[in-house]
Simulated assay, not measured.
Amino acid sequence: MTGVAVVVIDVQYAFFSGTNAAYRGAEVIDGINRLTAAARAAGAPVFIVQHDEEGDEEVEYGSEGWQLPAGLVRTGGDTLIRKSVGDSFHETPLKAHLDRLGIDRLVICGYATEFCIDTGARRAALLGYRTTVVSDLHTTQRTSQLTPEQIVAHYNRVWEHSSLQGNRVSVRPLADVLATEFA
């Protein structure tokens, strides 16, 4: 059996609030809610990955910043995955859950385009999953070098043109993913 799963990475209060909140944060959360609702309706599992780091007040486990934003819809059927580095697979049960469910395709969205989304997508592809990053459902914060718009656009292009052991990361907008994966 093969199937598709949605992986929502690091959509947490610390990154979607305050003066340097994630670029297009409310729009991204709204789109993620549409994506995960369609996935659930189609019987596809949803994994919500939360970053936590002991001693980091911003995202320490259980802290306000670690929590999911109020606007992000989560159901009891979703699987929560805790991670402490940028890679959602490193020392987490994510791969074991996916393999147990017979998942071979991942749809990835969430926060920190240039860090956790990039690392998660590349790792998923290297592990053999057919991986799609939803082009309009990943985001980041402003840095001193690039605008969030530039970072998102740059990584969408990089993923489109990279091959990881012959397994490309697909980059598709939400409308296309909804029409093809969860119709």
Results as ranks from 00 to 15, higher is better:
residue 128 G to E: 12
residue 168 R to L: 10
residue 42 A to D: 15
residue 57 E to I: 11
residue 35 L to Y: 01
residue 160 E to A: 15
residue 60 E to M: 11
residue 102 G to N: 08
residue 98 L to P: 05
residue 106 L to G: 07
residue 115 F to Y: 13
residue 145 Q to T: 14
residue 162 S to Y: 06
residue 113 T to F: 07
residue 90 H to K: 11
residue 11 V to G: 04
residue 54 E to W: 02
residue 3 G to L: 02
residue 83 K to Y: 04
residue 173 P to M: 07
residue 24 R to P: 00
residue 143 T to M: 06
residue 34 R to V: 07
residue 141 Q to H: 14
residue 153 A to M: 07
residue 11 V to F: 01
residue 49 V to I: 14
residue 95 K to F: 10
residue 95 K to Y: 11
residue 175 A to W: 03
residue 79 T to V: 15
residue 20 N to Q: 09
residue 36 T to E: 00
residue 20 N to W: 02
residue 143 T to C: 07
residue 102 G to D: 08
residue 134 V to A: 02
residue 117 I to D: 00
residue 27 E to S: 07
residue 160 E to H: 09
residue 118 D to W: 02
residue 40 R to K: 10
residue 67 Q to K: 15
residue 8 V to P: 09
residue 152 V to F: 07
residue 119 T to I: 13
residue 72 L to N: 06
residue 95 K to H: 15
residue 107 V to G: 05
residue 59 V to P: 00
residue 141 Q to M: 15
residue 160 E to Y: 05
residue 5 A to L: 09
residue 46 V to S: 04
residue 85 V to L: 09
residue 174 L to V: 03
residue 40 R to W: 09
residue 150 Q to D: 10
residue 32 I to E: 01
residue 135 S to P: 06
residue 183 A to Y: 10
residue 167 N to H: 04
residue 39 A to W: 04
residue 171 V to D: 00
residue 122 R to E: 13
residue 116 C to Q: 00
residue 76 G to K: 11
residue 153 A to D: 10
residue 26 A to N: 11
residue 110 G to R: 01
residue 23 Y to C: 06
residue 126 L to A: 11
residue 122 R to T: 12
residue 29 I to C: 08
residue 136 D to G: 07
residue 175 A to G: 11
residue 166 G to P: 07
residue 47 F to G: 03
residue 57 E to C: 04
residue 66 W to P: 01
residue 31 G to W: 04
residue 166 G to D: 15
residue 3 G to H: 07
residue 11 V to D: 03
residue 93 P to M: 05
residue 84 S to Y: 08
residue 135 S to W: 00
residue 129 Y to W: 03
residue 48 I to K: 09
residue 150 Q to K: 10
residue 47 F to I: 04
residue 149 E to I: 10
residue 24 R to L: 06
residue 40 R to M: 09
residue 71 G to C: 12
residue 88 S to R: 00
residue 175 A to H: 11
residue 154 H to P: 13
residue 79 T to G: 04
residue 58 E to N: 06
residue 153 A to E: 06
residue 9 I to S: 03
residue 64 E to T: 15
residue 33 N to Q: 12
residue 85 V to H: 07
residue 63 S to N: 06
residue 137 L to H: 01
residue 15 F to R: 00
residue 85 V to P: 01
residue 100 R to D: 15
residue 93 P to A: 12
residue 112 A to D: 02
residue 4 V to N: 08
residue 51 H to A: 00
residue 2 T to S: 12
residue 127 L to T: 05
residue 147 T to L: 09
residue 10 D to K: 01
residue 67 Q to C: 12
residue 129 Y to A: 00
residue 49 V to D: 01
residue 142 R to D: 08
residue 121 A to R: 01
residue 161 H to N: 13
residue 135 S to K: 02
residue 127 L to Y: 08
residue 141 Q to W: 09
residue 176 D to K: 12
residue 7 V to W: 01
residue 108 I to E: 02
residue 162 S to E: 12
residue 172 R to G: 01
residue 136 D to C: 08
residue 21 A to T: 02
residue 91 E to C: 08
residue 158 V to I: 14
residue 33 N to T: 10
residue 85 V to A: 06
residue 46 V to I: 12
residue 131 T to Q: 04
residue 96 A to V: 11
residue 173 P to A: 08
residue 148 P to Y: 03
residue 79 T to A: 13
residue 99 D to V: 09
residue 41 A to Q: 14
residue 32 I to H: 02
